Amino acid sequence: DNLVIALHSYEPSHDGDLGFEKGEQLRILEQSGEWWKAQSLTTGQEGFIPFNFVAKA
Results as ranks from 00 to 15, higher is better:
residue 50 P to S: 04
residue 5 I to G: 01
residue 13 S to G: 10
residue 26 L to S: 00
residue 36 W to G: 03
residue 30 E to M: 08
residue 44 G to F: 08
residue 38 A to R: 02
residue 48 F to E: 02
residue 38 A to H: 00
residue 46 E to H: 08
residue 28 I to H: 00
residue 52 N to Y: 12
residue 30 E to C: 13
residue 49 I to Y: 02
residue 9 S to T: 12
residue 52 N to S: 11
residue 8 H to A: 11
residue 29 L to Q: 04
residue 18 L to P: 01
residue 17 D to R: 10
residue 14 H to W: 09
residue 44 G to V: 02
residue 10 Y to K: 07
residue 9 S to A: 11
residue 12 P to V: 06
residue 3 L to H: 05
residue 9 S to L: 05
residue 47 G to A: 01
residue 20 F to S: 00
residue 4 V to N: 01
residue 44 G to P: 01
residue 30 E to S: 11
residue 21 E to S: 13
residue 33 G to F: 03
residue 7 L to S: 04
residue 18 L to K: 04
residue 44 G to M: 09
residue 34 E to D: 11
residue 57 A to W: 14
residue 36 W to M: 07
residue 15 D to H: 11
residue 50 P to K: 06
residue 49 I to D: 03
residue 16 G to Q: 08
residue 52 N to Q: 13
residue 53 F to V: 06
residue 47 G to H: 01
residue 49 I to F: 06
residue 51 F to E: 07
residue 56 K to E: 11
residue 39 Q to V: 14
residue 30 E to N: 08
residue 4 V to G: 04
residue 21 E to C: 13
residue 16 G to D: 09
residue 41 L to F: 05
residue 42 T to P: 03
residue 19 G to V: 04
residue 44 G to H: 07
residue 57 A to Q: 13
residue 43 T to N: 07
residue 57 A to P: 13
residue 15 D to T: 11
residue 7 L to C: 10
residue 34 E to M: 13
residue 35 W to F: 11
residue 31 Q to L: 07
residue 34 E to V: 14
residue 6 A to H: 04
residue 20 F to I: 07
residue 40 S to I: 06
residue 6 A to N: 02
residue 46 E to C: 14
residue 25 Q to N: 08
residue 16 G to H: 15
residue 36 W to R: 04
residue 42 T to I: 13
residue 55 A to I: 14
residue 10 Y to F: 12
residue 13 S to V: 15
residue 4 V to D: 01
residue 22 K to Y: 06
residue 21 E to K: 14
residue 42 T to S: 13
residue 44 G to D: 04
residue 6 A to D: 01
residue 52 N to M: 09
residue 38 A to V: 13
residue 20 F to A: 00
residue 8 H to E: 11
residue 36 W to Y: 10
residue 46 E to I: 15
residue 2 N to P: 06
residue 28 I to Y: 01
residue 48 F to N: 08
residue 18 L to S: 03
residue 27 R to L: 14
residue 56 K to W: 15
residue 42 T to Q: 12
residue 41 L to N: 04
residue 54 V to R: 00
residue 26 L to W: 00
residue 5 I to S: 04
residue 8 H to S: 09
residue 8 H to K: 14
residue 9 S to F: 06
residue 57 A to G: 11
residue 24 E to F: 02
